[in-house]
Nucleic acid binder design. Structure first.
Lengths: 170, 170
DNA sequence: TAAAACATGTAAGTAGTTACATGATTCC
DNA sequence: GGAATCATGTAACTACTTACATGTTTTA
């Protein structure tokens, strides 16, 4: 997966500025992707140079100008190629699991705190995904719904397991 | 999470060579961590320079010499600090989810293939985790078991959801 | 009046990968 | 005879983050 292809995917639907792309990442992709402005802006410049997208400066009142990018036919082609390539193998890098794995060398209190914090985070994510699924129902494609639903069922499984562990140590 | 701390965690139990560390990653950490030789060997040299570990060259018959590393007290201290620091926020970067999110722009056949491939991968991981949980039962700490179990329940949830989707499109 | 939102961009640094280089031994 | 395992290491490269720089307007 390449940030260029992610951006091309977004621009396939409508033109966006770098700032709007970042917001979209936070709003819809946060559970499986993120990127900072320090990656987004240079990438957009590079993609413009590669003629995958074109830039248009839009003047706004009471706000700074914004550079809105539109996908070109070369960009569309590159994105279709990405979509029909096999997905990269899933690699999770989890500091939670690493802490847990070496848990026997830590204080018990620290481990319980880790479990409670992580449980809260997952519950938050669970609520967030459910809310998005309800709220945006009509505009989402079936595939986008499936993304949310897969996130939800994995959250559920995680939450239940952690809760049962925390209860048994009361 | 830092590869240095992961290595220190391993060396807390017993001395290892770089090659053995890599194998341990593949065997026990593969579902939440991985690193290549190109990271491991330079990191070990750096950590030796920082006096976090010490090196001993072991001559072997019929095999190349190996450099076995032992943790120092400074290393142990650094690892304890890591273990009692809050875990980094979980960030999943998933090309599967990205492909799925833009699925409406791909051919239906490509999407079904994506789901089937990913299902197979998860099933493989599920079997692998279950096998490790059974096989290594006596030597594992309760926290290590919990790692495996959390992986297993998340796999289960994912597999069930994908299977129900694939059935409904038959 | 301070913070957040809007908006873009660069520079320095971190962390990692892949490919290459070397070479013996054992297994199929 | 060729692949896999054992074993270490470097060089070139890719991708990304954080912090800095700038400046206006709206909201709390």
């Amino acid at each position: 997966m390449n940030i260029q292809d992610v951006i091309l995917g977004l621009l396939s639907k409508q033109p966006y500025s770098g700032y709007e792309i970042k917001r979209h990442f936070e709003e819809y992709f946060s559970f499986f992707f993120d990127a900072s402005f320090g990656t987004i802006y240079p990438t957009l410049s590079k993609m413009e140079g590669l003629k995958l997208i074109t830039k248009e400066s839009i003047k706004q009142e009471g706000k700074p100008d914004k550079n809105v990018y539109t996908i070109t036919s070369a960009g569309s082609e590159k994105f279709r190629f990405y979509l029909h390539s096999p997905a990269d193998k899933e690699v999770l890098r989890s500091d939670f699991f690493m802490h847990l794995y070496f848990g026997d060398m830590a204080d018990e209190g620290a481990m319980e705190a880790l479990l409670r914090r992580t449980l809260e985070e997952k519950q938050h994510m669970y609520e967030d995904l459910n809310q998005k699924l309800e709220q945006l129902d009509p505009t989402m494609t079936p595939y986008q719904k499936l993304c949310m639903e897969l996130g939800i069922v994995q959250c559920e499984a995680f939450i239940q397991k952690i809760q049962s562990v925390l209860k048994s140590t009361d």
